[in-house]
Write a protein that binds this DNA or RNA. Structure first.
Length: 266
DNA sequence: AATGGGACCTGCGCGC
DNA sequence: TGCGCGCAGGTCCCAT
């Protein structure tokens, strides 16, 4: 669910609400989401530390703790943070110095919480591609040269570029009028620049709207993000294209549901 | 290097 | 109404 705009939204809220709060207790209701280290060491390390800063790397959230360790959280499909929480349906709850709860919820239990010494050593971070906002159009262009793979799965490849998932890949390609089936190699210079500009514009707009609440994503406060109403193709199978009225198509590409306008996107 | 499949999980909506 | 099936925004791992 959560892609760069959603994770960035949560990061900003966590910064506003939680910096300099001490974690006084940790309750683990389901240890499946604790990937590293053991449940007991995890609790022991986090408990008693103060949250000093919040970092985002792609879709990964990182809490910098006062003891020098880092709590990293990947929300995967259905992870959520809720603050202040009530502990209900929470997989892990953090009690803070103001006596409020920060709840980590995760319906499908696919999320990952870790405590590490150095987050740069996590394989996911090590191999993570550049942040979109750190790129320029010409860098992006050169990244695409000689890539034979299809453009949509490539945009979703976190090693290629950080933060773009299935939803924003679809939206960005629609806005750039490029078919998800095209090979990266086949894009003209103009198309590459255009695609880059649409990536930046779309992600910024989505952050301004505080993300897209489809099914599971919510802001820290529990409120939905409003970018959904700007979606042009995602989850719109059979609906008319806003530009040409052609029915939006859904195909399966690299195992993922892929929405596009067969007429506008060439 | 690229592609395809399955695995990890739970719960929802659809068609029969 | 009840049940089985396919599907879900992410990532990793294996095989070809």
């Amino acid at each position: 669910m959560p892609e760069l705009p959603e994770v960035e939204t949560i990061k900003r809220e966590l910064m506003q609400q939680l910096v300099d709060k001490k974690i006084t207790a940790v309750v683990v209701n389901n240890a499946k989401v604790i990937k590293q280290p053991s449940r007991s060491v995890f609790i022991k390390t986090v408990k008693g530390s103060t949250i000093k800063r919040i970092i985002r790397k792609g879709k990964l959230l990182i809490f910098g703790l006062s003891n020098g360790k880092f709590l990293t959280v990947h929300l995967r499909m259905t992870g959520q943070f809720v603050y202040p929480g009530d502990g209900i349906k929470s997989r892990v709850s953090f009690r803070l110095s103001n006596n409020r709860l920060l709840d980590y919820k995760d319906q499908r239990l696919l999320g990952e919480l870790r405590v590490v010494k150095n987050f740069n050593n996590i394989p996911f971070v090590k191999e993570l591609g550049p942040e979109p906002f750190d790129l320029t159009a010409s860098k992006f262009e050169s990244m695409l040269t000689n890539r034979k793979t299809k453009i949509k799965p490539l945009l979703m490849d976190q090693k290629f570029i950080a933060g773009i998932g299935n939803l924003y890949a679809a939206e960005v390609l629609f806005r750039a009028r490029i078919s998800p089936l095209r090979s990266a190699l086949s894009l003209s210079k103009k198309e590459k620049r255009n695609l880059f500009n649409e990536i930046i514009k779309t992600l910024k707009e989505a952050i301004r709207c505080r993300g897209s609440s489809m099914d599971q994503y919510i802001q820290l406060s529990g409120k939905p993000g409003s970018y959904v109403k700007h979606h042009k193709v995602y989850d719109k199978k059979g609906k008319p294209c806003i530009v040409c009225n052609t029915a939006i198509k859904r195909i399966s590409l690299a195992g993922r549901g892929t929405y596009f306008c067969p007429k506008c996107q060439k």
